[in-house]
Design a binder for these strands. Sequence first.
RNA 1: GCGCGGUUAGCUCAGUUGGUAGAGCAACUCAUUUACACUGAGAAGGUCGGGGGUUCAAGUCCCUCACCGCGCACCA
Length: 730
Amino acid sequence: MDEKFLKPYNPQESEARTYEAWQESGYFNPDTCIEKGITKANAEPFSIVLPPPNVTGKLHMGHAYEDTLQDVFIRFNRMLGKKTLWLPGTDSAAIATQARVEKNIKKEEGLSRHDIGRDELVDRVSAFAKESEEIILSQIRRMGASLDWSRYAYTLDEKRNLAVATAFKRMYDAGLIYRGNRIVNWDPKGQTTISDDEIVHEERQAKLHTFRYSKDFPIPVATTRPETKVGDVAVAVHPDDARYKEFVGKEYEAIFCDVPIHITVVADQEVDPEFGTGAVGVTPAHSQTDWDIAERHDLPKDVVVINEYAKMSVTGRLNNMKTTDARESVVAWLLEEGLLEKSEDVTQNVSTAERTGGIIEPLPKLQWWVAVNKPFVLPHSTIHGIKSGEKTTLKQLMRTVVESGAVSIPQDGFRKTYFHWIDNLHDWCISRQIWFGHRIPAWYRSDEVSVGTSAPSGEGWTQEDDVLDTWFSSSLWTFSTLGWPEETQDMKTYHPTSLMSPAYEILPLWVSRMILMSGFHLGEVPFKTVMIHGLVRDKQGRKFSKSLNNGIDPLDMIEKYGTDALRMGLLVGTSIGNDIRFDENKIKGYKHFANKLWNITRFILENASSDLKAVSYNEVDNALKKSFDELAEDVTKDIEEYRVYMAAEKLYHYAWHELADKIIEESKPILQGNDMIAKTSRELLLNEILNNLLRLLHPFMPFVTEEIWQSLPSKDKEFIMIASWPVTIK
RNA sequence: GCGCGGUUAGCUCAGUUGGUAGAGCAACUCAUUUACACUGAGAAGGUCGGGGGUUCAAGUCCCUCACCGCGCACCA
């Protein structure tokens, strides 16, 4: 017996060495497994593409959990003999990364991005990204993740750039990407547009002011944003509202706070006659709903009164004031003029930018969009529910794919969330006014526009300044990582991928858009199953956040208890989909468990390794073996049906409370006794159970099982990682 | 407003197609150098959020209410 078993199991001593050995073996790469005859060339594929972590930060508990889940499925399927690929990568995360670096530069050098210039800034952001990339990748390795590093991808590398430009061009040619002047969510703090999904609503106290534009204006109007009223072009009322019927169609002139305005009264179904005065002041340029009203009634939409810095751009006293100051100024003016009827306190939801916290200012801007409601013909489709050559829209495609089960979301509640989101979906604004990211592959020359994967020939073309929303490139991820648009062998073998297991936060942001992109470009689903998981929270159930300073570094847990303990602690006792409260005590418990396995092994090696070998079990041992086999089948079924938390718990329970507490305890007299048949039978049993149990546990606790496996005398020195799963699946 | 979760032992949570309520931790009693103290044995702890229904049988299915989270939309 190896002397190491005389001391307690020490994960710190062996984990790094073990990971190194796995990596050197090349078995993370399915091609190597085939070459070495471990996987059959015609084996069924199983693939997962790692949701690429942002190159802004370091590994947090959420990553640790997500990586564990995926690694369990990957290791399980590899041991089943499937052609198993887990593909790693990282995401440039355009806005997040640039914002981070800009902040540092501002703090350390007092310079803005415009002082530095585009090229210099992009260089600096890229350097920062490179640095954090290395950190996060080394951290993922410490989780024991069996990723095929030879296929590593980065959203801004050459192949992914080609994929992005190709995707953009094809969608542009199909009329699904267009450039248009529409209301965007403008973040004055970040100086960029953001998509609807990057907005966070915050409840605030506000005042609802009821006023008239002028003394002789017949209809009072209520607003929480008086400063925008200088941009009003109409008042909308409900068509059936008797109070205002006589005014519909009439036009009025007024000088509102030094600004001449022209107001038309229109009737619109959307107006709620019960709210406020039952009349809406329509400001098309600074409100999405008002823009829509203006479209329906053919009202002017170009009366812009607020600029990109959230300052007023009008004639008179308000000019160049911050909107918040202008608000007070307008109220004061209304009071002076006797136009203010009342002011009430209301709670209001304010839209803020997720990344910067800036208050969103709706502004009309010329931007690039993905049209989600525009019909197009999908030439080739293997998606269940959509035929080749069928006419559809991107929205419909996203819905059908999940409805038909082409993408399976086993958790019913999340299916509903998904549909709810799809039904509320508007065109997707994909241009961002920042410099780090994929520059939009469009070139302009006077009135001409050229879209392509490279600059058009000829003189005088300038490329679009804006870059793409980071989710545009992320949505291509399942296939851009496999070599698309080239027709690679990897594409044929591993796409659609088998499983995606994202946090529920990212379902609309990412999952649905991967379905969109894969559907349009390939006529395929991006993955067959989506297993949505919850968030890891602190002990009090709060989100981990910098401001609360409640973060727990997974690496600290690994230092203290070992990776296997962390993995088990995150998995057991948590159904997938619900949030998890992080409990260090649990992790500690599984450190003890790793040691328990260590000592079970020690006992068996010390007491059940005589030279005499039984060829069959006696009756008692046969029954014990049978019940173990039942457990093995049970656990296998649990993993196949995504109940990994139950599988892990059952194995834990069996190892500790069956094998150690009962079988080993009962073995002591047998092994010391004189009944050689009973003794050799029991020796065989203990060795068999240990051998199989280690394999069953390996996906969950890869390090300790490998470390033990390497010391079992009966085995050759192959890795447990590529040992066969003890249960055959039909 | 629309929607999604959750409510089970002191705490954190499991509970698969309905079939005698489970685990870990904590607390309690005992064992004391054992393969393992990163230990073992034992006992205790629950009208499964409330109410109603379906059923031979409900933590599980249906209806309803309450409370706690969360998402989406939004009214000017």
